[in-house]
Design a protein around this nucleic acid. Structure first.
Length: 608
RNA sequence: GCCGAUGUGGCGCAGUGGUAGCGCAUUCGAUUCGUAAUCGAACGGUCGCGAGUUCGAAUCUCGCCAUCGGCUCCA
């Protein structure tokens, strides 16, 4: 289990050394450590301007402005300086300062960023600074009372990175130093150890080790190539969802990878999304002409065209068009990474066309499907549900205020009716509508959006969609966009890390490996394999001339869920010796082939 | 896109100015072995790419590409 999941386990929590500290106290400690960092930096590099330095999960950072970046060697020096400061056991003292006096002090200090922050404060609120020795920082606190509370061997500077002032890429780029801080050296050590553990389940590492996918410089960044094993995993997931969707009234469709740019002009994508799309394949030589084809960044306009190809009665609705549609988005180079952020990915997309009256019910059905999918994959409670609304202050959205209000209300109501544990995030909506998103964390603790459901009143408007109502009038349907996996790529990345490569039997590319003790028993092994393959089990025989110990080791490192050892006694009695990766039943002993098959089938049925 | 780091056979690594090395994997040979590594041999790299400095560059400089950690942005 990833570290953050371990921490969620109540039993593990009680004994968890990292959980023994009071969170509020740790937060204060980290914030104070960031002050010590800034103090050390300004002692060593006096020309450096300070900006902000908050506590964050597991540590802290501080952003600085200086002409040259920090080097890894600088970090070592700074860390040493920090230890020195901490060991002086300096009190960290709060001082409230009148606004006028504070402005003067900041001006005298020559800290333009601090001054800018100060000018943005509420004019009626008191302003405070924190003093540590001869150094001080504009800060609301709180802090530890003395640097003596910071253990000199319980913090560590970790990396330096560029960060924009106030998170705005148009403003100055600052140098951010990240650090981690704990109450005791033991906690620091444990944290670093767990981080090493977490790295072992990184899907990029496991993907290579298990041979699931590769990248090629010639193909291009962010364009994964699925190997036979990886593709098998993908197909299994697709097959699972396809079958479930058929049961739930979805209709498969297939649409092309490119379309006239006009399609995306009508949808609005071209105007709002152009920078994220691969460039136009122009069909006109004319300067500035916008004619030709583009790679699709989304599937919805295609499905809409299918809907529009006929006249629909209210009796036909909801219409649910589903496709594993591969889309291409020109993500900025620095944003790419593994399978979680790529430039070509496949959405388990569906667009539902419903009457306004059907919206609530249909929305709930979609969420039910998503929950079914997550449960089937043992993702249980690993996610959080995010209700994503638009940022009222931004103009990046299309559609009327009224349509937005309606859609947002519909989503909120559904989330409440379903009793989902959700949180509302303003500014996280798609540009065409609000969403209910399912957020997962990867092995390194980073958050990713997977499944999503979106209510859309805007595209039906832009494409002038209609259905014939009971009274014969033409009405406008509402659309629901939804994807339980989100994208196959990102979903599989999370799955790999969730299982640490130890997939449940039904998902494993190679489900069973049969290990003949010597090559005399290869024939018997093949006969067992044939029986399994006939039943649809993905089985292989290890016919190499290695010893059994090595074959087992190879099977284990390849994380094959079930190993069947066959030697003289098995061949004579029609049995197999079963070895699994399930904790507590590594060795299931020798079973008749029929019983081994029954065991496999049971696990397949239960998806374990 | 921006800041920083990194780039050596399929994979993991060593090599910091003097003609490129190890382990695993692969191939071949021997071995026929009972629950996490049998022995031996061979094959395999224009050291990411391109310029430059130098008598000489994996090693120094510059440019580009890719990857990683962040920022910004998003399934």
């Amino acid at each position: 289990m990833p570290q953050w999941q371990l921490q969620c386990d109540s039993k593990a929590m009680e004994n968890d050394i990292l959980r023994q500290s009071d969170p509020e106290k740790l937060h204060r400690l980290r914030h104070s450590t960031s002050h010590i960092l800034a103090m050390a930096v300004q002692k060593l590099f006096p020309e450096t301007k300070a900006t902000i330095g908050p506590a964050i999960e597991n540590g802290f950072y501080y952003d600085f402005d200086r002409p040259t970046p920090f080097t890894p060697e600088d970090l070592k020096k700074i860390e040493k300086e920090m230890r020195g400061i901490v060991q002086q056991k300096l009190p960290m003292v709060r001082e409230e300062v009148p606004r006028g006096a504070m402005r003067e002090r900041l001006e005298a200090l020559g800290e333009p960023y601090k001054l800018e922050l100060f000018e943005g404060f509420d004019p009626d609120a008191p302003v405070s600074l924190y003093r540590t020795g001869d150094w001080w920082d504009l800060c609301a606190g709180p802090h530890v009372e003395s640097t003596a509370e910071i253990h000199p061997n319980a913090f560590k500077l970790r990396s330096v990175a560029g960060a924009y002032w106030r998170g705005d890429e148009k403003r100055a780029q600052l140098q951010r130093i990240y650090g981690t801080a704990w109450e005791t050296p033991e906690q620091l050590e444990e944290f670093l150890r767990r981080e090493e553990e977490a790295k072992k389940r990184d899907h990029r590492k496991l993907g290579r080790e298990l041979g699931l996918f590769v990248f090629s410089d010639l193909v291009g960044p962010g364009l994964p190539l699925w190997t036979p094993k990886g593709a098998l995993l993908r197909y299994t997931l697709e097959e699972f969802l396809r079958k479930e969707q058929i049961k739930r009234g979805y209709q498969p469709v297939v649409t092309p990878h490119i379309a006239r740019v006009d399609l995306f002009k009508t949808s609005g994508h071209w105007f709002k999304y152009k920078d994220d799309m691969f460039p136009l394949m122009a069909t006109s030589e004319e300067e500035g002409a916008e004619e030709g084809f583009v790679m699709k960044p989304m599937n919805c306009p295609f499905h809409i065209q299918i809907y529009k190809s006929g006249l629909h009665s209210y009796r036909d609705l909801p219409i649910r068009l589903a496709e594993f549609g591969t889309v291409y988005r020109y993500e900025q180079s620095g944003e790419l990474g593994g399978l979680t952020r790529v430039r070509g990915f496949t959405v388990d997309d569906s667009h539902l066309f419903v009457t306004p009256e059907q919206l609530d019910d249909e929305f709930k059905k979609v969420v039910d499907l998503i929950q079914f999918v997550f449960r089937s994959l043992q993702l249980g409670d690993d996610f959080s549900a995010r209700v994503s609304f638009r940022d009222p202050a931004s103009d990046k959205y299309i559609g009327s205020d009224e349509a937005w209000e309606k859609a947002q209300a519909a989503i909120l109501k559904a989330a409440q009716d379903l009793g989902l544990k959700y949180f509302v995030a303003e500014g996280e909506a798609a540009f065409y509508g609000p969403k209910l998103d399912f957020i997962f964390r990867d092995a390194l603790g980073r958050e990713w959006q997977l499944g999503t459901v979106q209510v859309d009143y805007i595209l039906p408007e832009r494409f002038e969609l209609e259905y014939v109502a009971e009274d014969g009038s033409r009405r406008r349907p509402v659309m629901i966009h939804r994807a339980p996996f989100g994208s196959l790529e990102r979903f599989i990345a999370i799955l790999i890390e969730h299982f640490a490569g130890d997939f449940p039997l039904w998902l494993a590319p190679e489900q069973v490996r049969i290990l003949p003790v010597t090559d005399q028993f290869v024939g018997y092994a093949e006969s067992v394999k044939d029986r399994l393959v006939c039943l649809g089990v993905r089985a292989e025989v290890d016919a190499s001339s290695e010893r059994l110990g090595k074959k087992i080791r190879n099977g284990e490192t390849a994380k094959v869920p079930v190993l069947l050892v066959v030697g003289e006694s098995e061949a004579n009695s029609g049995t197999v010796a079963v070895r699994t990766r399930v904790e507590g039943e590594k060795d299931k002993g020798t079973l008749p082939v029929e019983e081994a098959i029954a065991y496999l089938q049971e696990r397949l049925a239960k998806r374990t």
